[in-house]
Nucleic acid binder design. Structure first.
Length: 965
RNA sequence: GCGCAAGUGCUGAAACUGGUAGACAGGCAUGCUUGAGGGGCAUGUGUCCAUUUGGACGUGGAGGUUCAAGUCCUCUCUUGCGCACCA
């Protein structure tokens, strides 16, 4: 055997070829639940720059773990694929004109061959490519399931626009006000965009983090991002005169139930109140009632309608037919259809069809009062209002069921228009001295006529909306704003009128976009109050200067003074008619992109502009190729004639396609599902196969995805579970992050700095086994590490040493059970726990021990090779077969050791006096304590003890004897 | 400001539930080996004093708990990461 020369260039390709011929890494079919392991490294974006040494770290660690599991008899799924849609290929196309498809395909070819040269044990028959129609067909199908179930929706909103990438971005893709991809300052833009309703899962996404075996730091990032706060919603009545129209219910009139009382109450507050009695009230006709109402009342922007019971139906129908919007509609025990606990004549004379869109346009706000004890109207009616019209539902207990009382205070409270705020400190309500709304707050559009300085307000709003987040934060927290003159609200606790401001320190998307300002106990409110000379009322006692946010005893708080703030918060909330409420910082996921190289959103619009789903039989809804992808601020798909013609051909003239594509994070939110059944053309993955493998047991990838891919995938799994497709709650049971590989100088590797280490070159010079082992040896897996080719030479020496050791192997040599047992124990434990660096050093220690022997027992050496096989799969397989084994080492069994082999005849004790090491002795194993104590009194020890009194003796079995004198 | 992680030789690092700090490598030094392309082997390598025996100090800093602390507790400094006008 010409064993002297270790030639990695010869050995590695040969071994790889043999693996392929033997089909070593084919995934087993029908794994058993206990025995299956799904181990996955995050699939890469196939960039033109090729594989990075950073990829090698996570893929090698995962591969090592997988090979180890297979040798232990587990059935393993270990696939690889391509996150192939994305901006770099498209940007390259803009520069060079080469189609992204071509760039991507080339990059994939290159990645695949690079990955193969590393000897990674993927089942290549399961490769997926997110940019292929066979894949994105299912991305689109999943989108449609979400759409059908209200989890995907289109909405106009102030969104993040990246001028560099010429597209909108999700919140998660904006880092400190700049685009995470191109570092451009992100601007706010009002646009109609597609969203996934991830916020519906905020609470569950937060709660189920607990059970995951994930790095605590990543869980903390997600927790932070979801940002749960518990507080209260409070209502501040708007201090303004309006015209109220009270509409009675079936068989009623102006004198029915609470109406006379309500009229009186509202009139006392200075409002105008009209209470028409509808015609034929015992046998009503809807058309007649609408025209009557419109004749009796002039509906305009100052009109507030309060409608009881059937009156709500009349009111809705009337509003539907108006030309100008009214301010508010309050339904009291209202309903939308005949699904109620009574049967009446009007069931037949009303048509029960509503144009909800029109109604929404014609009324600024709808409030639904529902009586918990209502004997006619079930709560489902209130829920319908909420779902169909976005109405705010308020559940109350009326004095008599169905609000039949003579005086209903809850109705009065709802009737008075109010500004809703969210606060985590309802206990400080008595200290609220002014209000602030965000520049985007709807109040500014509802009360246009009432705000006397509307021009100044408008100017401020316009300026604020034009500022980027960076510009806002540059102002260093300087608080600006404009008072809404002519408009005040009442503090519900004190009835004091409070001024209202618009200021951009209040954010539109959080809470209700409005706050009560308590300058004494909030830093920001304090600053603002100082700038504008507003009153500051201290309501919580405490030490130190204002503002301070600590809890304590309440003062200046009416009946609540002398109570503890934390204890009084719920009671205060209750007495002013607010509700305790939980709010999240998480926003819905903005998924549409104004770019080309992504999956088209499978939606088309009819000639009226209403969206419709592309039916399943037309999927994949192909990405057109006749596209001008130069960014112009509108979606490139808009330039495709083929797409437009396709839409008209399939749906009819005047129909138009959606031209936005999906965020590439949509593609990667479910690829781990597809790997279980990658070629299925009937479903996104066979249900049984899915559940055979999922959830992923161990997932490996970078920490930078903490609130992107990792959060999105969790949402997808939960949503698909609720749609009935999945039966598990979380995609990734365990997660491990790899650290970054930095350039030798400690900088990030980058093309512009020219400090990139190319894995191909390293494989060429040192071999894949050495590269793999070195990258594991560099340091703890999750830690960032700087590259050092010098240190890599040390690992190469180790690999060469192993090659040389095989010369000393002999069948006759005595075995060394203790050395092997120690090595097996440590390597097993370290691979299991991803302590990749000590796997290597343990194997080095074993090799060094072998080297000191003149001959090595073959069984020992074979065990050693098995332990090394997951790390260095080529050299070990070659040596294994040289030793006469017919099958690959990678299908052999992981070595075992006996506990007794770890035991020794002798054990050494460190002998301490007062905790300081003074001597070490060796005694036979099992020496009795009393004997040990005499043996331990060596000359050296006596010198330290001398005539001093021994106060205490501590013996730690097998380790230490400590005398305290 | 809030949340999280980490600070150990010249360098990468090791130290499982508190139990000989620096394993394993790199580098450096000395020696051996006709030994030739990133050779192999041996010895040494935390600091200071004694220079042989031995001793003192030492894991960012200051305290503390303990027979015993890199490890636990309190405070503090530095670095990195995440969030950040979130009411």
């Amino acid at each position: 055997m010409a064993i002297n020369d270790y030639e990695h260039k010869k050995i590695e390709p040969e071994v790889q070829k043999r693996w392929e011929e033997e089909g070593l890494y084919t995934t087993p079919e029908n794994p058993s639940e206990k025995n299956k392991r799904y181990v996955l490294a995050m699939f890469p974006y196939p960039s033109g720059e090729g594989l990075h040494v950073g990829h090698v770290v996570s893929y090698t660690a995962t591969d090592m773990y997988v090979r180890f599991l297979r040798m232990q008899g587990f059935e393993v799924l270990h696939p690889m694929g391509w996150d192939a849609f994305g901006l770099p290929a498209e940007n390259y196309a803009v520069k060079t004109g080469v189609h992204p498809q071509e760039t991507t395909n080339n990059a994939i070819e290159n990645f695949r061959s690079q990955i193969k040269s590393l000897g990674l044990s993927y089942d290549w028959s399961r490769e997926v490519n997110t940019s292929s129609p066979e894949y994105y067909r299912w991305t689109q199908w999943l989108f449609l399931q979400f759409y059908k179930n209200g989890l995907a929706y289109k909405k106009k909103a102030a969104v993040n626009w990246c001028p560099g990438c010429q597209t909108v971005l999700a919140n998660e893709q904006v880092v400190e006000g700049v685009c995470e991809r191109c570092d451009s300052a992100v601007a706010k833009k009002d646009m109609e965009q597609w969203f996934f309703a991830i916020t519906k899962y905020a609470e569950e996404l937060l709660l189920s983090l607990k059970g995951l075996d994930w790095p605590e730091s990543t869980k903390a990032v997600q927790k932070n991002w979801i940002g749960k706060s518990e507080g209260a919603e409070l209502y501040f009545p708007i201090n303004k005169k309006c015209t109220y129209v009270l509409v009675h219910g079936y068989a009623g009139g102006a004198d029915a139930h609470f109406l006379p009382w309500l009229q009186k109450q509202l009139e006392e507050k200075g409002h105008t109140v009209l209470v028409p009695t509808l015609p034929n009230t015992k046998n009503p006709n809807i058309e007649e009632q609408i025209s009557f109402l419109k004749k009796e009342v002039t509906f305009d922007e100052d009109t507030i309608v309060v409608a009881h019971s059937l009156g709500s139906v009349v009111a809705l129908k009337t509003i539907e037919s108006l030309n100008v919007p009214i301010k508010r509609l309050i339904t009291v025990g209202g309903f939308l259809d005949t699904d109620i606990a009574t049967e009446k004549k009007y069931f037949a004379t009303f048509d029960w069809k509503f144009d909800f869109k029109k109604i929404k346009e014609n009324v600024r706000e709808i409030v639904v009062l529902h009586d918990e004890n209502d004997d006619v109207i079930p709560v489902t009616q209130a829920e319908k209002f909420e779902r169909r019209m976005g109405a705010r539902v308020v559940r109350v207990v009326a004095t008599k069921p169905h609000f039949r009382g003579d005086a209903e205070a809850t109705v009065l409270r709802a009737a008075l228009s109010s500004l809703k705020v969210f606060t985590t400190r309802p206990d400080t309500l008595f200290g609220a001295t002014y209000m602030v709304v965000a520049p985007e707050h709807p109040l500014l559009e509802i009360y246009t006529k009432d705000i006397t300085n509307y021009d100044a307000v408008q100017k401020y709003v316009r300026d604020a909306k034009n500022k980027t987040d960076i510009e806002r934060s540059k102002e260093g927290g300087e608080k600006t704003g404009v008072q809404l003159e002519g408009l005040t609200v009442l503090n519900p606790a004190t009835n004091t009128p409070l001024p209202v401001f618009v200021a951009d320190y209040v954010l539109p998307g959080y809470g209700s976009g409005a706050i009560m300002a308590v300058p004494a106990h909030d830093e920001r409110d304090f600053q603002f109050a100082q700038n504008f000379g507003l009153p500051i009322i201290e309501v919580v006692q405490g030490e130190g200067e204002l503002p301070r946010s600590s809890h304590g005893t309440l003062i200046n708080s009416g009946a609540f003074s002398d109570r503890l703030s934390e204890e009084a918060r719920e009671e205060i909330t209750e007495t002013v008619g607010g509700e305790m409420k939980t709010t999240y910082r998480l926003r819905d996921w903005l998924l549409s992109r104004q770019r080309y190289w992504g999956a088209p959103i499978p939606i088309v619009y009819d000639p009226d502009g209403n969206p419709h789903m592309v039916p399943e039989e037309y999927l994949p809804w192909l990405l057109p190729t006749d596209v001008d992808y130069n960014p112009k601020g509108t979606s490139p798909l808009g330039s495709s004639i083929e797409l437009k013609e396709r839409t008209e051909r399939l749906f009819g003239p005047g129909w138009t396609p959606e031209i936005d594509t999906m965020d590439t994070f949509v593609d990667s939110s479910w690829y781990f599902l597809r790997f279980t059944d990658p070629h299925n053309s009937e479903v996104f993955a066979d249900r049984e196969k899915l559940h055979e493998w999922l959830p992923v047991n161990t997932y490996v990838g970078g920490a930078e995805h903490a609130v992107l891919h990792l959060l999105y995938s969790r949402f997808f799994v939960k949503a698909l579970r609720d749609l009935g497709y999945l039966e598990f709650n979380e995609p990734f049971s365990a997660l491990r992050h790899q650290g970054m590989i930095l350039a030798p100088d400690g900088d990030k590797m980058s093309k512009s700095k020219g400090n990139i280490i190319n894995p191909d070159e390293m494989i060429e010079r040192f071999g894949a086994d050495t590269l793999r082992a070195y990258e594991m040896f560099m340091g703890p897996f999750e830690q960032n590490k700087a590259w050092s080719t010098d240190n890599m030479i040390g690992v190469r020496r180790f690999i060469e040493k192993v090659w040389r050791l095989s010369e000393k192997v002999s069948v006759d040599s005595a075995t060394n059970p203790r050395l092997l047992a120690q090595t097996i124990k440590k390597v097993t434990h370290d691979i299991e726990t991803f302590r990749v660096n000590t796997v290597v050093s343990t194997l080095m220690i074993c090799a060094n021990a072998f080297e000191k022997m003149s001959t090595i027992a073959q069984t020992d050496f074979e065990k050693f090779l098995k332990l090394l096989a997951p790390l260095a799969p080529h050299i070990t397989d070659a040596l294994w077969r040289n030793l006469g084994n017919a099958n690959s080492i990678h299908v052999s069994d992981w070595p075992h050791y006996e506990e007794k082999d770890l035991e020794t005849d002798e054990e050494s004790y460190v002998v301490q006096v007062n905790g300081k090491v003074r001597d070490t002795i060796t005694v036979p194993t099992g020496t009795l304590e009393e004997d040990l104590l005499t043996l331990v009194r060596t000359e050296k020890i006596e010198k330290w003890i001398e005539d001093k009194e021994i106060k205490k003796t501590i013996i730690v079995k097998g380790k230490i004897v400590n005398f305290v004198v």
